[in-house]
Design a protein around this nucleic acid. Structure first.
Length: 139
DNA sequence: GCCAACGTTGGC
DNA sequence: GCCAACGTTGGC
């Protein structure tokens, strides 16, 4: 199983919106960036991801699971853009902020910081474990 | 609201 | 294929 990070501006699609979709999940659509798309194409059913609020909040607030592999993005006719479906698994007991992540020497290489504009990014198993621990949340 | 980082576009 | 211009993202 692999780990990922999904970024969303809470004004557009928040953790609460995601939770409201329940186990049916929802398309992670609207991605118009090749690297982010390629990451989604590599995802498998059951892969886990952090749900990060960009802009407002700037924190990891929950864990999602991939429940449909890559398929055409329904919000565009442009065949270049694919997306996966994700469903909420559990919220973070304590959200982990970007500031905390930046202050952690163990997390200095995390894609979230190194490539701050990449909206769908890989997370290593170590990073997953460390961040879950920081958030007092079961991995 | 500003600006740095970075991705994309299009002329040559 | 290079690179200038431009647009977007996202932290501050």
């Amino acid at each position: 199983m692999r780990y990922w990070l999904f970024k969303s501006e809470p004004d557009k699609w928040s953790w609460d919106d995601q939770v409201a979709k329940g186990d049916a999940g929802e398309e992670w659509d609207g991605i118009r960036n090749y690297q982010a798309r390629n990451n989604m194409r590599e995802m498998a059913i059951g892969d886990r991801g952090f749900f990060y609020h960009s802009n407002a909040g700037k924190d990891i607030v929950g864990i999602v699971e991939v429940c449909a592999t890559s398929h055409p993005d329904s919000t565009t006719d442009d065949e270049r853009w694919d997306c996966v479906d994700v469903k909420a698994v559990r919220p973070f007991k304590t959200p982990v902020t970007l500031a905390q992540i930046k202050n952690s020497p163990e997390l200095e290489d995390i894609a979230l910081v190194r490539q701050s504009r990449l909206s769908v990014a890989p997370i290593t198993a170590d990073e997953w474990r460390i961040i879950c621990k920081m958030g007092d949340t079961k991995p």
